[in-house]
């Protein structure tokens, strides 16, 4: 095998001329992967906007029945985790691997907080019959009414059937986002293991930076999901 062991911190893989070239290539690969992420979520955003155009009243009802305080909390948690991740990259680049390790632990903790909050949100929705899958769709109308703003009280009688579609998109988009968070946690543990093995140095930190980019894109998607789902 050509993956014979060599010191990754000082030597590039066999088909690269230098660590710099290897780093640049790796980073560009991650950026291309980010473009695919944008397009993949983009498809769901197309769905969101098309149905919003068709059933915009139901989007208001649906948005009101979500708990925006929890959404805002999660936004904050993700922003902080993005910050710790960015700072972890900074520390790795300056050679402070121990600090970087601590920061990544905080990032993972934030990711878990996000998922726990999401779990409570989801279970509340399922409890009130608002999960649009299998045969579980049986929304508790009095509950939804109680959640509505005054300005949208009149809408609900119009066409409650299409409310389902809002929740389809809600669960599809936040669900896919949640899966990305899970994958992100997996990647963090991979990074943690490699930091503990002392694999990174100011010259070789592509993996940390790549996972960082991934984590920020997950954050960006949430930046859009939060207002679209919870606020407007």
């Amino acid at each position: 095998m050509s993956t014979a062991s060599y010191d990754k911190k000082t030597q590039a893989a066999h088909h690269f001329d230098s660590l710099d070239q290897q780093h640049e290539a790796g980073k560009q690969g991650v950026w291309l992967f980010m473009a695919t992420e944008i397009m993949m979520f983009g498809g769901l955003f197309v769905g969101y906007f098309l149905y919003r155009f068709k059933f915009h009243d139901m989007y208001i009802v649906g948005g009101d029945s979500l708990n925006w305080q929890l959404g805002a909390l999660n936004t904050l948690v993700l922003l902080i985790s993005s910050f710790t991740m960015a700072q972890a990259v900074t520390e790795t680049m300056s050679g402070n691997n121990k600090k970087a390790l601590k920061l990544i632990y905080v990032t993972v903790a934030c990711a878990f907080v996000f998922l726990i909050v999401k779990y409570f949100e989801y279970s509340a929705k399922v409890h009130h019959g608002m999960f649009p899958g299998f045969d579980m769709w049986n929304p508790d109308m009095t509950y939804i009414m109680s959640q509505l703003r005054e300005s949208s009280q009149g809408i609900i009688t119009a066409d409650p059937a299409n409310l389902r579609l809002f929740f389809v998109l809600y669960f599809a988009m936040t669900g896919l986002h949640g899966i990305h968070i899970l994958i992100g946690i997996g990647l963090m543990f991979w990074i943690i293991k490699r930091i503990k093995n002392d694999e990174f140095s100011p010259k070789y930190y592509t993996a940390v930076e790549g996972v960082g980019l991934y984590w920020h894109i997950v954050d960006i998607i949430w930046i859009f999901l939060f207002p679209l789902m919870y606020l407007i």
């Binding site: 980073k27 560009q28 950026w31 291309l32 980010m34 473009a35 695919t36 944008i38 397009m39 983009g42 498809g43 955003f45 197309v46 906007f49 993005s82 910050f83 991740m85 960015a86 930076e209 960082g212 980019l213 920020h216 894109i217 954050d219």
Partner: peptide, 27 residues
């Protein structure tokens, strides 16, 4: 800033913009 695009070369910016541009087209 977090993703360092401000400090990157032109190519990675183009890639990110390509993703967004084609998405806008799709929408």
């Amino acid at each position: 800033w977090f993703m360092h695009l401000k400090y990157e070369g032109i190519m990675n910016r183009v890639i990110a913009l390509c993703g967004l541009g084609f998405l806008l087209l799709f929408v």
